[in-house]
Design a protein around this nucleic acid. Structure first.
Lengths: 193, 193
DNA sequence: CGTCACTAACTATGTCGATAGGTAGTTATC
DNA sequence: GATAACTACCTATCGACATAGTTAGTGACG
């Protein structure tokens, strides 16, 4: 359900090819929703069949061509509709906390390694997001600027503010994970003197 | 990869039937890893074929029978091995933050509704986990007590401590989500005077 | 004796998603 | 002009998961 809408979110800004979208999914949107190209190409076809998108072959080099998709009125309506529809929350599936619940089965050193890996993983994300926030604030985010170029002036502040809001949320998630894993390290030390 | 290990985590405590496990997945383990029975029964068969489990038919009533599974030495080793192996982190797929990033497309009231739903969802979880933590601390958690009954005295404190640690982690996740969504509500108000 | 909730187990279908390939054209660079 | 890196697109397979059913026995209650 989310993938078509993630694609729409990018395509309402400007027409793109599957390959362009696949690259965006490795950066910007990929921060909150990852998808491999093997999912993107079939999804675009399905969405075209459903009338959400229209594709057009445009030449690329002397012999090559590429298929560029743009959003139809129906697609725009579907996206707006999704944005106005409340989410259904999926039940939890959290391998890190699953393992944490049975950590007495791990060697103390293995437990420490995994908690440290948890910290590093989320510290990496945190750094990435801090950079993104800085770019949004500086106005040096190419992703956001492209989007703002297609946004009426009145809505520019909203667009910027919600982007910032999203990344700040991701940052507090990461911070919570890091703080938790640090407490875990102390706990492992206390239980294995 | 996680489902078989979640099943092992329960079965190393005591033998159970598929139905018992399915019930556990609606409470205890289900808090961190959800699975429907349609996944559990085939998984048990596969795990028996792989030698991780052994099943035995035990009578139930005058004509009925049920299949109870216990963990083999190989299963115990596999679980311990998994517990000692670092996690591979899957890339993010977070519909709530995906939608947040494009919230300017939603009607202000729809945005507010969704942020409130986000708060309620995580407040519900928070309450549930607070109860669980209280039960663990009080010693009234049947789940934990059953597990402790099969645990050598020396490891009882670890078992209890890691359970608490896990639920405290879930609680701080939920708290972070709630705080974030509350900031979101204020933001929607500020942007839509 | 009926019926209703529960225990027990399983199947079938469809989508989602990860992983791993493959083909073909283009552009840069050495 | 060779070749490497990149653009563009696509397929095939496998397991994960959701959803929705089916079948059958048990035990309690009225």
């Amino acid at each position: 359900m989310s993938l078509p809408n993630a694609l729409l979110a990018l395509l309402v800004v400007e027409p793109m090819t599957g390959y362009d979208l696949h690259k965006q999914f490795e950066s910007s949107v990929g921060h909150v929703w990852h998808a491999p190209d093997s999912q993107i190409y079939p999804a675009l076809k399905r969405m075209e069949a459903e009338g959400l998108l229209e594709g057009e072959d445009i030449p690329w080099g002397p012999r090559g061509k590429k298929r560029q998709y743009h959003v139809t009125a129906a697609g725009r309506a579907a996206f707006r509709n999704w944005m106005n529809t409340p989410l259904e929350y999926a039940r939890t599936r959290d391998p890190a906390h699953l393992k944490a619940a049975y950590l007495e089965w791990a060697e103390p050193d293995a437990a420490r390694r995994q908690l440290r890996a948890h910290i590093e993983h989320h510290a990496g994300l945190l750094e990435q997001w801090r950079d993104t926030v800085r770019e949004i604030e500086d106005g040096t985010s190419t992703m956001l600027n492209r989007r703002l170029a297609h946004t009426p002036d009145a809505d520019q502040e909203k667009t910027r503010a919600y982007k910032l809001f999203t990344y700040e949320g991701l940052m507090s998630q990461a911070e919570a994970e890091i703080a938790w894993a640090r407490r875990g390290l102390k706990l492992v030390d206390r239980l294995n003197p």
